[in-house]
Simulated scan of single mutants.
Amino acid sequence: MTDRLPYWRLSGFYLFYFALLGATAPFFGLYFAHLGFSPERIGELLAIPMLMRCVAPNLWGWLGDVSGRRLAIVRFGALCTLLSFALIFVERSFAWLALVMALHAFFWHAVLPQFEVITLAHLREQAARYSQLRLWGSVGFILAVSGLGMLFERLGMQAWPWAIVAIMSGILLASLWVPNAQPEARSDRRARGGFIRQLRQPGVLAFFACVALMQLSHGPYYTFMSIHLEALGYGRGVIGLLWSLGVLAEILLFMVMSKVLARFSLRAILSASFVIAVVRWLLLGHLADELAILLLAQLMHAATFGAFHVASIHFIQRSFAAGQQGQGQALYATLSGIGGALGALYAGYSWTRLGPSWTFALASLAALVAAVIIATRLSEERA
């Protein structure tokens, strides 16, 4: 890294931000089940923050591109996320929790797309090293999911909201430590005709459609994976370690991702991610009671999230001009939210009616459709 790159400041923010994901993704469902909600209600509650990604990132992305005050948006979003989530201590009814989920998600989804633009602005010509910063987010995820899994075994799920508030406070403090940076405003043919014209370029819309499909396929995993494993007899501490294993594999991939990007095209990386997702969901749906198979499926997280995410960030950077980066990242978050919300909703309703096997089989089908689209519609390279 060069002296100009604030490596640890950027990495620290990623660490806290994805620690929050590690504290929510595996435990949201367990917490709501602890409160006595049915699978249908759990699916609806978890779909709310994903639906907010359909609105919030585009609003904040447009504001960031117009004002250029991306870091101010990150800090404001972090503060309001903390204050909004703290309302969870007021009441535990379904309607109130739905409000808390919607309100805190509106501000939470303002944060990451703008921060990604700031990070890439700091990296400039070193964009291939993005994964070396992002891996600290995975470290944060592991620390949260493994540590909290053991904590909740001792204290129970009633301690979960307090842990979330502590991590959100860390995000806010980390955002105050990050220096600002703006994308270079250079003459760029991608800027001609505006953002909408870039969306019409070959392969761009196909890519964004597949972003939604990938997140839809993750619906059962993020909503019911912990509940699924608990029903199969795994303890909460073990469940936390299994989530950590997937993210550890992701970290190892991040460490070599710059070499992978140099050797393979984005189309090849994205296609492989979807094919591996097809296999992963089938294994989790049908053979998760076999520990060896479960370990293998968790290692596949390196591809279904890690490789997919890094390749997607690079695709967006290549596809949009400097003044469109915020909107590009926002659309990525939005389509992820739409897919994730639909995934959580269908998983919630199919879990009790069709069972885990068929629910994960539908996720596998979504990944297969995306693999075909990417392989046939995305160009081999984008300038």
Rank of each mutant, 00 (worst) to 15 (best):
V310F: 01
I374M: 10
F320K: 00
Y17H: 14
L335M: 14
I269A: 12
G340I: 01
G61L: 00
G147Q: 00
L261Q: 00
F360Y: 15
A181F: 02
A347L: 10
Q201E: 14
I276H: 06
T24L: 14
A375F: 10
V247C: 09
G326L: 08
R236I: 11
A375D: 03
E250K: 08
G237I: 10
Y17N: 12
M225Y: 11
S169E: 02
L79S: 06
F360A: 03
H228E: 13
R41S: 09
F195Q: 10
T304E: 07
E184C: 10
F18V: 00
L242R: 03
D3F: 10
Q198T: 08
A370C: 05
G64Y: 02
L283K: 08
V145M: 11
M150V: 12
M300R: 07
A47G: 14
R154F: 02
M101R: 01
A366Q: 07
L123P: 04
M52D: 12
S187G: 14
A78H: 00
S244C: 13
T352G: 08
A371R: 03
V100K: 04
V145R: 00
Q327V: 01
V66C: 14
S364K: 07
H218W: 05
W351C: 06
H309W: 02
R9N: 09
G147S: 05
V111A: 01
R124D: 15
F315W: 15
G36D: 13
A303I: 05
S175P: 05
A78D: 04
L345T: 06
S319G: 10
A25F: 03
I276A: 11
A191H: 01
R382E: 06
T2G: 11
G306L: 01
L199Y: 00
V256P: 04
V247M: 13
A128R: 09
A144Q: 06
S84W: 01
P39E: 08
F32L: 11
G68R: 01
G326N: 12
A72H: 12
L253F: 03
A383Q: 12
L79P: 04
M50K: 13
M50H: 14
A367I: 03
A268N: 09
L248Q: 02
G233V: 12
L176C: 15
S217Q: 10
R92A: 14
C210Y: 00
I239P: 00
L362A: 12
A19V: 06
P202C: 11
T304D: 05
I338R: 01
